[in-house]
């Protein structure tokens, strides 16, 4: 009974993703069974579509920028959280984590209203802004864990042995939280890359990849190309997430610390 339930759940969850590569290699413009034959022409067509290539570039640069920004800000927040006690710390941290549970459409609409009121031109930068906002809670959660594992005396020991504050941070703290930083960068990158709602509202003349794909759904003939692209994206996401977790665990092992948190148990 339970086994059947779990099986149904997994099929429901992953069947669409499994269908993606199947139709990406199917030799027909119609997305339906039965399959008609094997082809790689949809993949070959990818680089031959200039708007698509451009949207991939836009998405990549937005994802890189947003993940770096979110990680930098998360680094500051997590360090403050680990080192200083001040009144209202929990409340402030709660507010920073809010975008995690806030409906994304609300974040998107309110950001759009604010930006338009301020008279800001919508472009890739405004999307970076929005994506930084939604990536930050993840960055803080990951980096809080990294800082939480750290003995505060370690940085003092480095200062005691002649380091300035900055040297102590760079030579001792940074290497110890590096796995957390890499993990945060990779997860921020993944989130930003496939985010649609905020990108859709805040993008200017340069659509991101998900926004471009959505627009292409109106042309059934291009659907298999979308399938091919989707296949690549899923593969990339899986590789990145596994990479993030691998780096994090390796860091834990090397410093001999107890595993706490992380995305895959």
């Amino acid at each position: 009974m339970l086994r059947g339930y779990v099986l149904t759940y997994l099929v429901f969850l992953y069947a669409p993703i499994v269908l993606l590569p199947i139709f990406a290699f199917n030799d027909s413009t119609v997305i339906a069974f039965p399959l008609t034959g094997f082809t790689t022409r949809w993949f070959e067509a990818l680089p031959a579509t200039p708007e698509l290539v451009r949207s991939v570039r836009t998405s990549l640069s937005i994802a890189v920028s947003a993940s770096i920004l979110a990680t930098l800000l998360g680094l500051c927040a997590a360090r403050v959280n680990a080192r200083y006690a001040f009144p209202g710390r929990a409340a402030v941290l709660g507010f920073v984590m809010l975008p995690l549970i806030l409906p994304e459409i609300l974040v998107a609409v309110s950001l759009l209203v604010v930006l338009l009121t301020l008279g800001v031109q919508l472009n890739a930068l405004t999307v970076v802004l929005g994506h930084t906002l939604i990536c930050m809670p993840f960055a803080i959660a990951i980096l809080n864990g990294a800082f939480g594992n750290l003995d505060p005396a370690i940085e003092e020991a480095a200062i005691d042995l002649g380091c300035s504050r900055w040297q102590a941070f760079r030579m001792v703290t940074l290497p110890l939280i590096a796995p957390g930083i890499i993990s945060s960068l990779l997860i921020g990158f993944t989130i930003s890359l496939d985010e649609f709602i905020i990108a859709f509202f805040l993008t200017g003349s340069d659509p991101t990849l998900p926004v471009y794909l959505w627009a292409q759904l109106r042309f059934p003939a291009r659907l298999p190309i979308v399938m091919a692209l989707g296949t690549l994206l899923v593969a990339l996401s899986v590789i990145l997430l596994c990479g993030a977790e691998w780096v994090r665990r390796r860091g834990m092992r090397r410093s001999g610390r107890r595993d706490a948190g992380g995305f895959f148990a």
Binding site: A153, I154, D160, L161, G162, S255, R257
Partner: peptide, 18 residues
Amino acid sequence: ANRRPTNMVFQSYAIFPH
């Protein structure tokens, strides 16, 4: 602290784990 002629053995020892 980094310019003082003192060095410290911390309660947790603060060995650099990396």
